[in-house]
Simulated scan of single mutants.
Amino acid sequence: MLKKIEKNISLLYLNSIIFFLSIFTLKVNAETTIIAKSGDTLLKISKQYGVPLKELMYKNNLNDATRTIEGKTILIPLKNIEKDYKADNPIYKVVEGDTLYKIARDHNINLQNIIDLNNLGNNSFLELGQIILLPKGAISKKLIIKKDIKLASKKVFYHQTSKSENLSIIAEIHKITKEEINILNNLNNTVKINPNIKLKIRESKPPKWLKYGSLMINWSDWTYLDGNYIAQAKTKKNKSFYLALNCKKRTLNNTLNNSYWTSWYFPYNDFEFKLINDFCDQDFKI
């Protein structure tokens, strides 16, 4: 009888240790939750999030990996999400004040895409530190501004919109005030700028054409468009076209082919390398 009591006490002690360790592990690795959608199984979710199936079954106390679990709250280990998805999908860690709408807005992506990618509901409550998977190609507007602000604030005379843009963001990119943009373009305290609008960012100056190989480029005409830089250019036969540069990828584009943009291409001629170096790497004043 005494041995049986001692055995029960040992088991209770062992279970206590295991419980404590499980709590400690939870704090270290942390977890996030999703709501299973129609047709979801643990097998499907394990593949989607890159989580080992056995671990997912253990975490959720479920023994059937192929049974549909629509509507169930499923625990996903965050450590695996960060490790396995960093190369494929951008990830975002929730901070105070975040909502799904705010995350979608700040990354210029569709709200429903985030909801579908993370198996969330429209009104899902976000926890501090929760990892949210973002669609491929999503970039924080703050990162975009930091990347482009040095060039755009020194070398660009116009801002071309391709979609509806907030005037505050345009002003921040070009290091000027909203009031200056309104005055230069005769706007009436506009907040949103419609697509396909070319805004004057600085006072116009007489054209200054610089020669690069067989091309002449209007150095007073650089325009910012979605992180790329565009200027008027001419061939030696005086044919006008537009030339575009992408400084991050160090590639070029042009409208020489019947006024349509070609695919982006890497420089081949010496003057193309010089053009990219002159624009992307050097400060200049007109």
Rank of each mutant, 00 (worst) to 15 (best):
T235I: 05
T177F: 11
L252R: 03
S204G: 13
P206K: 14
T255W: 04
T251P: 00
P207W: 07
Y229F: 12
S240Q: 13
L225N: 13
R250N: 05
T223R: 06
N194C: 04
K211Y: 02
Y224N: 00
T190E: 15
E180F: 03
N188F: 09
L210Y: 07
L210G: 01
I201K: 09
P267E: 13
E180Q: 15
K205A: 05
W209S: 07
N182G: 10
K236Y: 02
L215R: 10
N258T: 03
N189R: 11
L187W: 06
A233L: 01
T223Y: 04
D270E: 13
I217N: 03
W209M: 12
S214C: 06
R202K: 15
K200Q: 15
Y265C: 00
N269Q: 15
N189H: 13
T235H: 02
N185K: 10
K208P: 00
K248G: 08
N186R: 10
Q232H: 13
Y265Q: 07
P206A: 14
P195W: 05
N186G: 14
V191S: 13
K205L: 12
W261K: 03
E179S: 14
Y212H: 06
S204P: 05
G213Y: 00
G227A: 09
N254W: 07
N188T: 09
Y242L: 11
L243W: 04
L187H: 01
N246L: 11
I193Q: 08
K237C: 00
S263W: 05
N254T: 10
T251D: 11
T262C: 00
N185F: 04
I201W: 00
Y229N: 00
L245C: 05
G227Y: 01
L252A: 05
W222K: 06
W261N: 04
Y260R: 12
L215N: 11
N246G: 10
S240R: 14
Y229D: 07
T262P: 00
N269F: 15
I181D: 09
N218F: 05
N257I: 02
K198E: 10
Y260H: 09
K237S: 12
D270H: 14
F241W: 04
I176G: 05
A244N: 08
N186T: 01
Y212D: 11
R250G: 01
K249H: 07
N246F: 06
N257H: 01
I201A: 10
K208Q: 13
K175S: 12
E180H: 13
G227D: 03
N194A: 13
Y224F: 13
Y224K: 04
L256D: 00
K237F: 03
R202C: 08
F266R: 14
K200F: 08
K192L: 11
W264H: 09
G227V: 02
K192I: 14
A233S: 15
N246R: 11
Y260Q: 07
L184M: 10
T177W: 00
F266E: 14
F271I: 03
N188D: 12
K208S: 14
K211D: 12
R202W: 09
R202M: 05
P206T: 12
S263T: 12
T251A: 13
N258P: 00
G213I: 11
S259L: 05
N228R: 07
P267N: 09
N269R: 14
P207D: 08
N196L: 14
R250H: 08
Q232T: 05
W209H: 08
A244W: 07
P267V: 09
D226R: 03
Y260N: 09
G227L: 09
A233I: 03
Y229T: 04
N253C: 02
Y260M: 02
W222L: 03
I217S: 01
